[in-house]
Design a protein around this nucleic acid. Structure first.
Lengths: 210, 210, 210, 210
DNA sequence: CATGAATGAGGCTTCATTCAT
DNA sequence: GATGAATGAAGCCTCATTCAT
């Protein structure tokens, strides 16, 4: 059976092509938007024809789904890896997630922005699947906050869900303005934000100095 | 010339009509997206015809510009009002801006989301104008942080620009999830976020307890 | 309200345009088939643009629906007119329906053939509606046969449903071959077929001659 | 040369494959239509690939031609077998043709409907070939009627061509509604229709009863 | 024999915008 | 001021067919 003989090879080739399509369209979707990017444009950039595109993707929407799902799954996986570590404190884990998200901007800023902005173009079922993953990410985050409270690392007075949304806002927003190759490094930004999250901006030393 | 005789009255009427168009399209643009909302749809909801639309707006894009600019100008104005107060400390002003932004969600969530997501459909010149206003809002915010540092209210070690982006992220993100008529009130959320920004989440009492 | 002032006039104009579209596409659908006729072709023949077509019809399928429904409704109406006559015998009514159907070929052959062949392109709901009308036509026909049996005009041994299908077959088939402007007239063909239906082809005189 | 060594064997295999393609596509063409059935669909149902299809058929149209021709040839052959019998009367032969056509529905309804509906997709030359066969079938039928008249079995007043079309209509139409496995058997239907054709529906006994 | 990637042409549909009335 | 018919350009998608392997 040919499937058994060259199945891997052609599967591989198909994946290579799909990867090329994804890479090209991430660039375009981020710059111009999903609706504003025509399939014609994607294939022109790639130097193939529309037929080729539709050989690999049933629809433009399916391509968007792939981009969104792969983005979210990657994020969930990285989060999982961090949370599973039993040696680290919640504070350390919080730092690692923040750092992971900031570091992620370099490789995934475009995907992330596509995810945030274009998700609504997905069909109901795909949308449900993706929203479930997004919710999972947030709930794991929140569980970390709750664990930190339980362990006495974080203030007992916190409202875990609101605080989680707030923390998420800080890093998510970075995807819109942070330039990973600019003056400030990813580590520095992660440090700044973890400090903001843990300690806030109020000057506690001011009283002593006076 | 009618302009001279009843100029005010017809200007007023034109504005009323424009307001109706804006109100209707904000609803649609937020729910379905700018590109996904056709002029046909807008006028159908309003019970008028396309001719009417194009009498008041040169193009669909001009309508979007109006929405975005009016959103941003309103925000700038409210910010200005808060910052001009010479009696209040920087901490108090920070609180007021956060509260203003959260409170704003009820009336302006849709406009805000349109602003964030659809801005890219504007022509270069409109885009410049709007980005300038957005930058101004952020710079005023940053100046408040810097003033707070200078006055010893905020830590001297802060990186004002990054911190400003972080603080902005917290509230901006709320526009995507916060339900003003849900369980938690706007005041409560503002309190939580100002506390997060000022004091962070670390439990400082824990040492005493040990 | 303009609707009240010129409503009739623009409605009329819309109908004129719809009629032109229908007329043009009946010609093409019959000659080439529904799927094989592109909207492009229809509008080219009409000398308008595709936009115009879609101003009047939501889709190509809706046009087909209009053609099919109007064909069937017209038929039902004519059948109704014949059946309602209380003076005539069943035999006379049978003759009139056969004659009506044959006469109808001249004006409606193309519609009829489109109806028979292209109906399957309609959406489920339209299909149901149309099939209901077709069924009604057949049931009225069958009721006429049953009435004729009851009145002693037709043989008591007949199987009304099968006979109805058979009679229908005779005239329906004519739509595929009969040329109304050929050598044989519509009246003559109707006479031939009614004689076939009533008396059959067997030579009953042959015995006497022997 | 393999042709010389195992020519028969591979010819046979090719025929087997062609038969499978035909069987599969008859099913699909009848259910969805010729144009509406893609080659992709046919090969998917068969579990092979497009390459295989195009190895056996030069084009989709050639496949349709095969289906139509084989349908018509089979019919002609069966008709020929009946007509050649020198023992039987014209009335008996008429009965046998009607019965043959009705019986044929079970095995060939789909082919027949494809023949009627999709013939127009054939190229001019194929079309000529097929129409010639269809004409031959009808002419043989008509010759039977004429012979019956000459032999005194059928009325001398009949118009053979019109009557032939009428008789054909009765059975052809059955292909659209008759369910061979329904309540009424093929024999019963053939009996009903031959009785209709020979004797008509008029009640001749009614006078006696009065 | 058979695969399956790729082409290219064409189809349906949408829509911002214009313009005569 | 407002209508609504019409345009024209563009978009998504399908599919028979080819061809290198």
């Amino acid at each position: 059976m040919p499937q058994l003989l060259n199945g891997n090879k052609s599967l591989e080739r198909a994946n290579i092509m799909k990867e090329r399509i994804i890479k090209t369209s991430i660039e375009l979707f981020d710059r111009k938007g999903f609706k504003e990017t025509s399939v014609q444009e994607i294939v022109e950039v790639m130097g193939v024809t529309k037929g080729a595109f539709y050989y690999y993707y049933k629809s433009k929407e399916e391509l968007l789904k792939d981009i969104c799902i792969s983005y979210m799954e990657d994020l969930l996986q990285q989060q999982q890896r961090i949370l599973q570590d039993k040696e680290k404190s919640c504070t350390e884990k919080l730092y690692e997630i923040v750092y992971m998200l900031i570091r992620n901007i370099k490789a995934r800023r475009k995907s992330a922005r596509i995810f945030f902005r274009e998700m609504r173009h997905l069909h109901e079922d795909h949308l449900q699947e993706i929203k479930a993953k997004r919710r999972a990410f947030r709930e794991h985050y929140q569980q970390l906050i709750e664990a930190g409270i339980a362990r006495g690392e974080f203030k007992p007075t916190l409202t875990p869900d609101m605080i989680t949304f707030g923390i998420l806002g800080i890093t998510n927003w970075s995807y819109y303005w942070f330039q990973p190759d600019g003056e400030i490094s990813e580590e520095a930004l992660a440090d700044i934000y973890v400090d903001l999250i843990l300690n806030g901006i109020k000057n506690r030393e001011s009283f002593k100095e006076k």
